[in-house]
Structure formats: C-alpha cells, structure tokens
C-alpha cells in the first residue's frame, strides 16, 4: 500500500471530502464539495459560475472514474516518460540581482518588498 495515501487518507475527514467507499456508486460532486475544492484552490466562483462548475466537474470526475477498471497491480507509477534520473548542478552562484526589472510586473511593491494585505499569525 502506498504510504502517502495512508497519511493522506487519514486527513480526509479534516477537509470534509468524503472518500468513495463503493465503486458502484455514481460519482458526482455536490455544490458544497465544489465550494470546498474552490477554497482549497483559492478560486472565487461567481454565483452563475458555481452551478455550471458543479455540473461540469461531476461530468469530468465521472469520466475519469473509468480508470478504476484498469488492473494496475504491481505497476510502478511513472516518474519520467524516459525513466531518466535527476541531474545535479554545481554549487555556483550564477544569478545576479535583477530586482528592479523583475518587480516591474508586481502590482504593489515598497522598499523592494512585495506587498500583501496584512498577514495575521
């Protein structure tokens, strides 16, 4: 059994996404689940968007659910299509300061800092 999955499964209830327990049950998502996913993904959905999203996401999830038919016992999940491994770079400083140029794309900057609404810890 996949270790990550165990750990992740243990957290399922915390997020409120109910894991499937039956392969036969039709897969679909309700509005509340979709809202929870949107929150996790930090996406604000307009009201008219929300209903359509529930319907289309349910369609997609039901569609990809056909994967459950495949027999994947003892199959190693793919890491890289050509089974390559990670190459290492030498520990050398190659990047020079380009802050002012790069910060031209930022909407709010002060004294070289990127600004966000106050973060409360």
């Amino acid at each position: 059994m996949h270790k990550a999955a165990c750990i992740i499964a243990a957290r399922a209830s915390q997020v409120g996404l109910r894991a499937r327990n039956s392969r036969n049950s039709p897969v679909s998502l309700n509005k509340e689940q979709v809202q929870r996913i949107a929150t996790l993904a930090r996406l604000k959905l307009a009201d008219e968007e929300a209903a359509e999203t529930v319907q289309k996401l349910s369609r997609i999830v039901a569609f990809v659910d056909q994967l459950s038919q495949a027999n994947t016992d003892n199959v190693t999940p793919m890491a890289h299509p050509l089974n390559a491994s990670q190459r290492l770079r030498a520990d050398v400083v190659t990047e020079l300061d380009d802050r002012d140029h790069v910060q031209e794309n930022a909407a709010a900057v002060q004294d070289g800092l990127y600004l966000v609404p106050k973060v409360i810890e």
């Binding site: 002060q110 800092l113 600004l115 609404p117 106050k118 973060v119």
Partner: peptide, 13 residues
Amino acid sequence: SIHEGLQQFSGID
C-alpha cells in the same frame, strides 16, 4: 513576511 512599518500591509522578502 515583514509586518513592521507597513500599516495595513505585510511585506514579502
């Protein structure tokens, strides 16, 4: 995150 001296903002370094 830097909170001092930025009023309603936090600054990110």
